[in-house]
């Protein structure tokens, strides 16, 4: 709501709040210089992280291998209660 009270030099006062917010961001992005490079880096980074890393290399182990929370908890309990001599030195 605070943005309602903002003054925009180049926008007509007839624009509603959503249009004003949209143009605020739109003009901001348009007038960026170094910001364009940075946004490019952000987008490439997010693509690598969420599409390549997340999809191909980082499945959630418990969600992928077990269907229910009961199965997941049974698995973890089994892992945690193995005899101690099955663990090596850290």
């Amino acid at each position: 709501m605070i943005i309602l009270s903002c003054s925009f030099n180049h926008l007509t006062v007839k624009k509603n709040i959503f249009q004003r917010v949209f143009y605020f961001y739109y003009e901001g992005f348009r007038s960026m210089t170094i910001g364009r490079t940075l946004w490019m880096i952000i987008l490439i980074k997010l693509f690598i992280m969420f599409v390549i890393f997340r999809l191909f290399f980082f499945p959630n182990f418990l969600n992928t291998n077990f269907d229910t929370d009961q199965e997941r908890s049974d698995h973890v309990i089994e892992e945690l209660t193995k005899p101690s001599n099955d663990y090596g030195k850290h």
Binding site: F61, L62, V76, E79
Partner: peptide, 10 residues
């Protein structure tokens, strides 16, 4: 989620 699933669950 991938490498520390026992921990994440616990």
């Amino acid at each position: 989620g991938t490498n520390w699933s026992n921990y994440s669950w616990f």
